[in-house]
Structures are given as structure tokens and as C-alpha cells.
Amino acid sequence: MSGAKLTKIAEALPSTVPFVGPEAAERQRGTAFTARLGANESVYGPSPKVLRAIEAAAPDVWMYGDPESHDLRRALALHHGVEMSEIVCGAGIDGLLNSIVRLHVEPGVSVVTSDGAYPTFNYHVAGYGGTLTKVPFRDDHEDPEALLRAATETGARLIYLSNPDNPMGSHHPAQVIDDMIADLPDGCLLVLDEAYIELAPDGTAPLIDTSNPQVIRMRTFSKAYGMAGMRIGYAIGEAGVIRSFEKVRNHFGIGRLSQQAALAALADTEWLEIVRAEVARARDRIAGIARENGLTPLPSATNFVTIDCGRGAEFAKTVLDALVARGIFIRMPFAEPGNRCIRVSCGTDQDLDRFAAALPPALAEAGSAMNDG
């Protein structure tokens, strides 16, 4: 007796996931982390109004969520000054990326991204048989000019760019992105991931232009709004581009509680300002801890700080492992030259106290290991 065969594409893929979650790492370690500073979650949590909205909606979880996310899309359209037909909601940006890749990528189709950028996008491209071209970061920033050149040379159907970017935390001003949009090759769609945009400096986000069918903007409630566990994001784009999602999206992918929580979060602008201030304070604290230990923090427009360890990828990985062994969950960029760094999410004062205490012995251990090697 034999089961159903996998597709040729699936058969060729490794049995892996883009990230190892902190819960899996805790199971492997046999103990919990004392500071969870690796997943770029918002430790400040959602607005108290969000928690009240979830509590009020909890008795209705026996019902599916509205498959059209009508009320949320209406609120988002008003918030951004666009039409409801120009917004689609999904299970976080990850779910939306899956849909956009499924719509546009098949075997032989070219896609362009940055080497070291968000790996889940690459995971989806591989899953649909696309051909991925990567260009290096330049000066710890994604390189719009190089992305455009690669797209032109390969006839790419999609370009993925995050602004601000993960994992380096850098950003480009709106004019740079507008210039990139103006130079997009015909037939190419820019997937502009703006997961951290609420935490970025003013002037980072270009004006939203839903008349342009070559750009789709990805947003989320996971970062600044503190709702990573609710899995809800949305995309803004030209109505025809958005309408195409109806062909493939999971129409019941967003639960009832998530929709109500997102509505409450969007309405609570005061809480968003509190979170922005806390993130800015935590970024300064992380940068200070880095400098106190002879390391170089990179400027950040996100809710994390990427820290240059100064001695290459092997040293950075050894520092990361030493911190994890001390109960501090962090991550690091995986591609050169970013992999000379570690990446630390913004945390509470207690989280950062623990990071500050663990970093000096971790650096000493890593230095000793490198010298012994």
C-alpha cells in the first residue's frame, strides 16, 4: 500500500521551515528563555482596548470570521484614504505573500529579492517552482538599483523589497522608493513589505497610489500593534491586483477574534504612540549596551537593533549561541555581510537588564573559543 505522490516541486524541496521558533528552541534546551528578544514581537502587547474587544468577542468564537473582513477593510480604507476594493486582509504578511506568489509564480518564472532578506518569501517562491535571483545588500541597506537591474536582466515578474528592512533594520526614504517604482520594468510587480512602517521615521512611506498596478503594499498588526499571535495583516493595491486574491486566498483564514482585535487596535492611536516611544527608548538602550561592550549598533527604523560584532560570521554565531545558552533568545542575519551581526528585539527593562548581564560573558566565551580555534 502506498500513499499519494508529492508533486515534483514538493519532492525536491527540503523538509524545513524558514525559522526555528523560540518554543522549539526551548524544548530542545529543556528550559524556558529568560528574555525573548529574537522574534521582533512587541513585548508591550496590544492596546488594553484590544484586550477588551477580544474578551467581548470571545463568546462568538463558535462562528467563523467574516470571510470578506468587511468591517476591518472599511476601517482600513478610511484610515489610508483608499477604497475597500483596494484592500485585502490575510493571515499576516506571510499568508498574503503566499497568495501573491501563488498568483504570479510557476516553474521558470523569475523573482528578485535581496540576499539575506525575509526568508519566508523565498520559501514560497521555491514552493511554486520559481527561479530566485538574489542581490547583495549595499552598506547594510537593500539596494533598489541592483534589484531593478536584476529584474530587468531576468525578466522578473516579482521584486520583493522590505522598507524598513529585516534583518538589518535600515530604511530608505520615500523618495528612493518612489524612484524605484518609477523605474519598474513592464510586467513586474513590486511587493513592498512595510511590516515595520509604523515604527519608522516620518518620510519613510511613499504616498499610497492605488492607481498603479505594479505595486502592492504589505502591512501587519504583528509589530507596532502588538498582535503577532492573532495573525492578521493586509495588502493595499490597485483594485484589479487586489481582486485577484479572491482566486486563491483562504477565505476563512482570519478568525473572528482577530478581526475584532484589529479594529480596536486601529482605532487606538494613543496606544500606538506609547509603543513608538517605548520602542525608541529600548532601541537606545540596546545600542548603549552594544557600545559598552565594544560592539557597533546599526541605526534602526524597526523594533529591533542589529549589532555588528566586528569579527565576522563565525564569531557572531558563537556569541549568539553563548547568549542562547544563558537564556537570551536572539537571532542573527544569515547572509554575508549581515552575518557578522546579531539582532536583538526591543524588550522590557527586565529583558534588557538580562541581555546586558549576559552579553559580556558571552563575548568572553566567544573570544576564547575563537582564540582556541
Rank of each mutant, 00 (worst) to 15 (best):
A356I: 12
L352M: 13
A357G: 07
C341H: 10
Q350D: 14
A358H: 05
F355Q: 09
Q350V: 13
G338D: 01
E365Q: 15
E365P: 13
R340W: 04
I342N: 07
P337V: 04
G347L: 03
F355T: 12
R340L: 06
I342V: 15
A366Y: 03
A366H: 03
L359N: 04
N339D: 15
C341L: 09
G338L: 05
D353K: 09
L359T: 06
T348P: 00
E365M: 14
R340F: 08
L352S: 13
A356Y: 10
T348L: 02
P360V: 06
I342Y: 06
P361M: 07
N339I: 14
E365Y: 09
G347K: 00
T348S: 07
C346K: 07
L359M: 03
D353C: 10
F355H: 07
L363F: 04
G347F: 00
A357Q: 13
P361T: 10
A358G: 07
V344G: 02
L363T: 12
N339K: 06
P337N: 02
A364C: 15
D349S: 04
F355K: 04
E365T: 15
A366I: 02
G347T: 05
R343S: 01
A366T: 05
T348F: 01
G347P: 06
L352Y: 11
A358R: 02
A356T: 13
E365S: 15
G338S: 06
A357H: 10
S345F: 04
D351F: 12
G347H: 07
P361V: 09
A366R: 03
C341Q: 08
G338A: 06
C346D: 11
N339L: 09
R354G: 10
I342G: 09
A357N: 09
L352W: 12
